[in-house]
Design a protein around this nucleic acid. Sequence first.
DNA 1: CCGCATCCGATTGGATACTG
DNA 2: CAGTATCCAATCGGATGCGG
Lengths: 112, 112
Amino acid sequence: MPTEPGRTPRPEPTCPVEAALAAVSGRWTTLVLRELMHGPSSFGDLAARLPEISPKVLTERLHGLRDGGLVHRERLAGFPVRTRYALTPAGETLRPLLIELYRTGERLLRHA
Amino acid sequence: MPTEPGRTPRPEPTCPVEAALAAVSGRWTTLVLRELMHGPSSFGDLAARLPEISPKVLTERLHGLRDGGLVHRERLAGFPVRTRYALTPAGETLRPLLIELYRTGERLLRHA
DNA sequence: CCGCATCCGATTGGATACTG
DNA sequence: CAGTATCCAATCGGATGCGG
């Protein structure tokens, strides 16, 4: 990107950087992804591990991630209803990005 | 982060991931950074290379980046007034992150 | 248990016009 | 040239209460 020639003049969704940013941006999104990186989880488990997120926002994040093909949703039979959320292969590919975000943030916090 | 023990329960600014995300988030921010990665630039040069950004937003981005210690601002003497914006060493450290964003985005776009 | 519906305040980004 | 000053529409995130 710094050394690439094909440059984007404006923030289009077709720009790879924008696409990646869209996948991880939004409040709580990275935390939801982090929990799912540990393995599949139900709605309630996620809510329990992120006690301060509201159900509405959790739903929004989960649906957004699913619409982006990053998370798979599966309704389990039985009662009470249970839903299983898991990362798709595409979702797994975000791991290096999250690690790089962590490393970069550490550097910034240490230095600022 | 995925394998780290010290986990953040909510989106705090002290979380490295949040800090890194804050540095690159916001519309136009990555494009401004990309231009500055090529080298120092004046306000007008940036505006010329990003023809669709409004002066207000460009100012906001530049000031935000400066407040975050990522960009250095220098007023040059003479007339007409010129201002030189350049990445600080901290700003340079964002390069690997931008590259990772690009790579991840490519994968997502190819696969979705 | 797993959400959806509604409302609401705050923040964001864009358009436009003007100044040192 | 390099911004500032307003105004405004749209989006976002949080709170709360109900439904399948």
